[in-house]
């Protein structure tokens, strides 16, 4: 009881574990469980960022790796080598020829969301996902979309939602929508190779939700 009263007023990271798992539809639950993989799990990715400050999207590609627990590594190969690691709530960014930079995960809500969703999906852990997001599923068992909306207010102030598109037991695509209108689309696995040279929001959406 005491512990609970301590936790309740705090929103930042420690949203109290509400018993919401039951609210998850059995099919959605089953889907999330079926996505689980043993750590470490690696996948190629290609990301297109549509930013307000730019008049055309930024495209990067590399490899995402879940190392187990809350450890995530994002290696960018193109256009320039950069490795970002998340461990213990801290982000470390390492670029070739530069000193590593460290900052708190709280300062990069985008990464927090990526960590929560990615780790939740790869570990096939509905409880973990439900803790961080309200979840809705659409589409069919063969081709589905999970809509994740962050529960944490601080995070939601910057990231409005994530759509994860998948086919069968594989996620193929993550679309991270930001409050300021920015959008990041990550193509995962084999789809990563299909990133167009000049992507548009529409073409990527079609790619993500297109057939296998």
């Amino acid at each position: 009881m005491l512990l609970l009263s301590l936790l309740l007023p705090l929103s930042a990271n420690a949203s109290a574990p509400e018993p919401v798992t039951t609210a998850l539809a059995p099919a959605t639950r089953a889907l999330i469980v079926s996505l689980g993989q043993p750590a470490p799990a690696r996948t190629a990715f290609a990301e297109a960022r549509f930013l307000r400050v730019l008049d055309r999207p930024l495209v990067i590609s590399g490899e995402l790796a879940w190392l187990g627990g809350d450890q995530l590594q994002r290696r960018v190969d193109k256009p320039r080598l950069e490795t970002a690691s998340i461990a213990d709530g801290e982000v470390t960014v390492q670029r070739v020829g530069k000193r590593a930079r460290h900052f708190s995960l709280h300062r990069a809500p985008q990464l927090q969301v990526l960590l929560d969703s990615f780790v939740g999906l790869l570990s096939g852990d509905p409880a973990r996902l439900v803790q961080a997001f309200t979840i809705q599923r659409s589409g069919t068992a063969a081709q589905w979309t999970l809509s994740l909306v962050p529960r944490d207010e601080a995070v939601a102030g910057s990231v409005v939602g994530i759509e994860v598109d998948g086919v069968g037991k594989r996620s193929r695509c993550m679309r991270i929508r930001q409050a300021n209108g920015d959008l990041a689309v990550d193509l995962l696995g084999s789809l990563a190779a299909k990133m167009p040279l000049t992507p548009t929001r529409e073409s990527l959406k079609a790619l993500c939700q297109g057939g296998p």
């Binding site: 994002r74 300062r107 990464l111």
Partner: peptide
């Protein structure tokens, strides 16, 4: 800055 925008710290910079 362009590189920064593609890095995880982009949110802080924009």
């Amino acid at each position: 800055r362009l590189e920064d925008l593609s890095s995880p710290a982009a949110g802080m910079l924009e």
